[in-house]
């Protein structure tokens, strides 16, 4: 893969991410309790992240004629919500690594990690409140409505996925997966960051639904790629334990494909494997699931779906951004589509 092809995307992402993280730290109180709260709040945002959400938000704002400054506080709020989700997600999944370092739950235990995640959710409200002086009451309210929808969709999607694991549901379809991904990932990773950026830039004049399909296809392609990387990626680049989703029994596109392709005996065995709590699963069984995925080409199938969706996202790019003047940010938004499914981290 010619890494230089994506240097431009990475540079823009890094610039926007650095801007957002710098601003984000301003919202973390410099007061007690430091050791088990505010110092830990800065833990995940301080680790090297991809910064897709602030990047998409600020780039879209600029592409629509605004400035990154106008969208910065909203981007910070989204990034804080995102990091809160990650902290709680790691607790829910009993994960050990995040962005190349130990998770807060692994390092400090579940109670402290949950409280840190709660704090990040609360802290994300402040930058949205401060939009008032920057954007005025109407736009501030509209951004709030976008964020409210974004957060609610995300927790609903997460509930769907957790419920599948809790109930050991092995009768899922691709449609179930796509719906869950829309709710859990796409609204808050792509659709709402873009919507909010355009909303702010145009003072509420833009038709925000123009981003729905673009964001959904891109977000779904991204999520499938993320799940693939979890199983076949490089731990050093990916930053999480490889195969963690298999240990966890996460209902990924690959696992759902396998469950729908396997023989009755294999499916029965898979059902038993998935019914066992994570810590009681053994390496041999995990490797067996992996081998079955290779046998049924579940990786190839998921990869094909991801690329189909990315193709559809590229097509939708022109609905979302096609009528705008050609700018650096528009080019970034175009190129990020391929980057998001070819990335190794």
């Amino acid at each position: 893969m010619p890494a230089k092809s994506y240097d431009f995307v990475k540079e823009v992402l890094e610039d926007y991410n650095a801007l957002a993280i710098k601003s984000l730290f301003r919202y973390i109180p410099e007061q007690e309790p430091r050791r088990y709260l505010y110092e830990l709040v800065s833990s995940y945002p301080g680790r090297p992240g991809k910064g897709f959400r602030p990047g998409l938000c600020m780039a879209t704002c600029k592409a629509f004629g605004g400035t990154e400054h106008l969208a910065l506080q909203s981007a910070v709020a989204i990034e804080l919500f995102h990091n809160a989700f990650l902290v709680h997600d790691d607790v829910e999944d009993d994960s050990d690594y995040r962005r190349g370092e130990r998770t807060l739950n692994a390092e400090y235990g579940i109670p402290i990690a949950v409280n840190v995640g709660d704090a990040m959710n609360v802290l994300s409200i402040r930058p949205l409140m401060e939009n008032l002086s920057l954007l005025g009451p109407e736009l501030t309210w509209l951004v709030f409505t976008e964020v409210e929808h974004m957060v609610r969709q995300c927790v609903e999607g997460q509930a769907m996925e957790l419920g599948w694991v809790h109930d050991n549901d092995i009768h899922l379809t691709e449609e179930d997966y796509l719906r869950m991904t829309l709710k859990k990932t796409c609204w808050y990773t792509i659709i709402h960051p873009c919507r909010i950026g355009a909303l702010i830039a145009t003072g509420g004049e833009a038709d925000l639904d123009r981003f729905n399909r673009f964001g959904y296809y891109l977000g779904a392609a991204f999520q499938i790629q993320d799940d693939l990387l979890n199983l076949i990626g490089d731990k050093e680049k990916y930053g999480k334990e490889i195969g963690g989703d298999l240990w966890e029994g996460k209902r990924t596109m690959m696992l759902i494909h396998l469950l729908n392709s396997a023989t009755d005996d294999e499916k029965e065995w898979l059902g038993h494997f998935l019914s066992v709590p994570r810590r009681q699963r053994n390496l041999q069984d995990v490797e067996n699931v992996y081998r079955l995925m290779i046998t049924y080409d579940s990786f190839g199938y998921a990869r094909s779906c991801s690329r189909n969706l990315a193709g559809a996202a590229l097509k939708e790019f022109f609905t979302a951004y096609g009528d705008l003047p050609d700018t650096r940010d528009k080019e970034f938004l175009y190129r990020i589509v391929l980057y998001m499914i070819e990335r190794e981290l």
Binding site: E175, N308, A312, L314
Partner: peptide, 24 residues
Amino acid sequence: ELTSVAQEVFSQIAKSTSRVVQQA
């Protein structure tokens, strides 16, 4: 520089919409 993955993605644009995209 288009990678093989990128070429595949671009090829999807010209094709009729795939099942997964229609479902989505």
